[in-house]
Design a protein around this nucleic acid. Sequence first.
DNA 1: GTATAAACGGAGTGATGACTTCGAATATAT
DNA 2: ATATATTCGAAGTCATCACTCCGTTTATAC
Lengths: 182, 182
Amino acid sequence: MRADARDNRARIMTAADDVFGRSPGASTDDVAKLAGVGIATVFRHFATKTELLEAVLTLRLERIRDRALELAGSDDPGTAFFEFFTQVVSESASKLAIAEALTAAGAAAGEEAREAGRGMREAFSGLLAAAQKTGAVRADAEMPEVYALLIGASRGATAAKLDPETRDRMLALIYDGLKPPR
Amino acid sequence: MRADARDNRARIMTAADDVFGRSPGASTDDVAKLAGVGIATVFRHFATKTELLEAVLTLRLERIRDRALELAGSDDPGTAFFEFFTQVVSESASKLAIAEALTAAGAAAGEEAREAGRGMREAFSGLLAAAQKTGAVRADAEMPEVYALLIGASRGATAAKLDPETRDRMLALIYDGLKPPR
DNA sequence: GTATAAACGGAGTGATGACTTCGAATATAT
DNA sequence: ATATATTCGAAGTCATCACTCCGTTTATAC
């Protein structure tokens, strides 16, 4: 691959991340304009709009997974778990917009993005298990409902455009429910 | 207004509620077909697609508010509060699809729908206050974050397509956080 | 420096969907 | 029963957007 091509590919992904993160309904033209390339260049690198969206979403998911893996090394698993939870919720807005764009623009996520999602959930599951082992999180909470809480808090914060204080108060309520009964 | 016109208007609203509740991206044609009328009839009753969506959303919100007002008469405010919360979350899927369609199809909700939303929140706020007075819900939880939880749980349940058991387990966690600290 | 293969941009193309037009149909008042 | 005002539906119009074509430009191998 020629150097300029690789360069453009990277610029397109960055632009797409930005544009779709802001408004899921954005057109491919918008992405091309922000990236400073022609629209044909976008389609040369990503055969369909869906493919582009998937690439962007996959990257996001991998970044989150990496963050979880990083925190998994912590010697305070309780704090690590809650910190990760909080971080994912705070950064959810743009991520969700992209996922939404994907579902809107035809069918569910493809294999690549699904695999990335699996990896992310696995890493999160590890954080949860560790936090439960130290007693920071109640032992009878299982992954499906805890994950549902993570998704719910993220979507809720995004949808309601919560200011940070309200968001933190909401998270505090959730965390109280996640802690072991006293 | 002629009888057949009023009839058609009602059929169109029912059809729209159904169609948009299922898939936010649906076209006006789809609504017309399900309603069994021509597309022009739809546009005669609702000048724009947005207007139609608003009418449907408003109706939904009013129904929810009525449910809350009904429960406000209960002599067990704690149960009433949690029952309402659970019910809203269970029925969220289609409601959210409509709200989503509205934001997708241009701009935020209009005055009518906003007013309906206000009424709904007010009724919910009443349920919360009553439940707090009897000690069923912790007193230091305030409306904004509790409402955020309601939205979040709804969106989370919808987005993750939770099966009923997982949804109930998630709600149980949330309710534990909402109950007074023991 | 030049040849050439690869990448580029912008002007199409076709499909979709919101909205309009207008002649046909139908409810109600007389 | 008939007049007429109102409502109806099907076939348009127009804009938007994903995607393609092709002549031009540019990076790199020699």
